[in-house]
């Protein structure tokens, strides 16, 4: 393993001052569940590691009665799972789907958002965009059974691995960021970007900025759910996932809806049209199926992943029915 500096700042100002000018020079260590394996595989080779676990304020977790919440970057997946069980079912269910109890106890909310893709070419050392020495893209003509079906017209064909992001998008959450110029907030759906080069990251963060937490707006009356299609019950990556948040009026008609998909595109995928088509309708098997179809309307499967289109549709349908309290 390459030699590296190890820093343990106790304030976010100190931390930011230690971060690098370019991606890859410095890596942030929180739970370490992804970073350590990236380093063992020589996929990440930082010169400096900034351990942020000593920054106390990043561990705070506040949820108010109206559902508005502030979740510190270092809140663990397991803490989030327990804290949001009643207030934000979509988020709690997404947390419950993450890996194993050990990883849920170590892994953090910001780590879930900033973890790197699981694309097996990337993890084997072929770069974020999976190219061989001759520069040829390996995914299109390779085994792409777990790759993107949506948003895959650019060079990035991996899927975003975050389980929490779709739920946070459905809840209209924002990412809180701190950098040399101070604090800023960005909507979760805008936080993620599909990289154009192997040197880019998958999020709209500068290399010297730090995710400090998440804010969720008030969610009174919001019904939410996450549905993951996963092969195993024990730790496994979802093959496709959907998070939804809806509001219903007295006649059970949808007054607002947000739908976000996970593990189907290089970013969490916001299914705007599928959500808007629900407005004014009741949630039923029929309307939920229609929303699922609309959510994948633009899908362009690769050579081995057409099955994920159906899985995505099913995830949307089941998440909507679950949010509305209708058993499938």
């Amino acid at each position: 393993m390459n030699k590296f500096e190890y820093a343990s700042p106790t304030t976010k100002e100190q931390a930011v001052a230690m971060l690098g000018k370019a991606w890859g020079e410095t890596e942030i260590l929180a739970g370490g569940t992804d970073l350590l394996s990236l380093m063992k595989d020589f996929v990440a080779t930082p010169q400096r590691i900034v351990n942020i676990k000593g920054i106390k304020e990043l561990s705070s977790l506040q949820i108010l009665r109206d559902g508005s919440a502030r979740i510190g970057a270092l809140v663990t997946i397991d803490q989030l799972l327990e804290a949001t069980r009643k207030s934000h079912p979509a988020l709690s269910q997404a947390a419950a789907g993450i890996a194993s109890p050990q990883i849920r106890n170590m892994g953090t909310v910001a780590g879930d958002l900033c973890q790197r893709p699981r694309c097996w070419y990337y993890r084997a050392g072929f770069g974020l965009l999976a190219r061989n020495d001759a520069g040829q893209a390996l995914v299109p003509s390779g085994d792409n059974r777990y790759h993107a079906i949506l948003g895959n017209k650019g060079p990035a064909l991996f899927v975003n691995p975050s389980s929490l992001a779709p739920a946070l998008i459905a809840l209209a959450a924002k990412v809180q960021i701190f950098g040399p110029d101070g604090a800023r907030e960005v909507e979760v759906e805008k936080f993620f970007v599909a990289p154009q080069s192997s040197a880019d990251r998958e999020y709209a963060l500068k290399s010297n900025e730090l995710v400090t937490g998440i804010s969720i707006p008030k969610s009174t009356g919001l019904l939410s759910a996450t549905y993951e299609v996963r092969q195993r019950e024990v730790l496994d990556w979802p093959l496709a996932a959907a998070s939804v948040a809806i509001k219903l009026d007295a006649a059970k008609k949808v007054t607002s809806a947000r739908i976000a998909l996970g593990h189907v595109a290089p970013t969490p995928w916001v299914a705007t049209e599928a959500a808007s088509t629900l407005i004014g309708k009741t949630i039923s098997e029929e309307s939920a199926v229609a929303a699922g179809k609309l959510a994948t309307a633009g899908a362009q499967p690769l050579s081995h992943n057409a099955y994920k289109v159906q899985l995505t549709q099913v995830a949307v349908k089941r998440a909507l029915l679950a949010a509305a309290g209708i058993s499938a």
Partner: peptide, 15 residues
């Protein structure tokens, strides 16, 4: 492509 225990899947107790 899957020389790991992430995508070389083994059943767990719940499976």
């Amino acid at each position: 492509l899957n020389p790991n225990m992430e995508f070389y899947r083994l059943a767990g107790l719940a499976d």
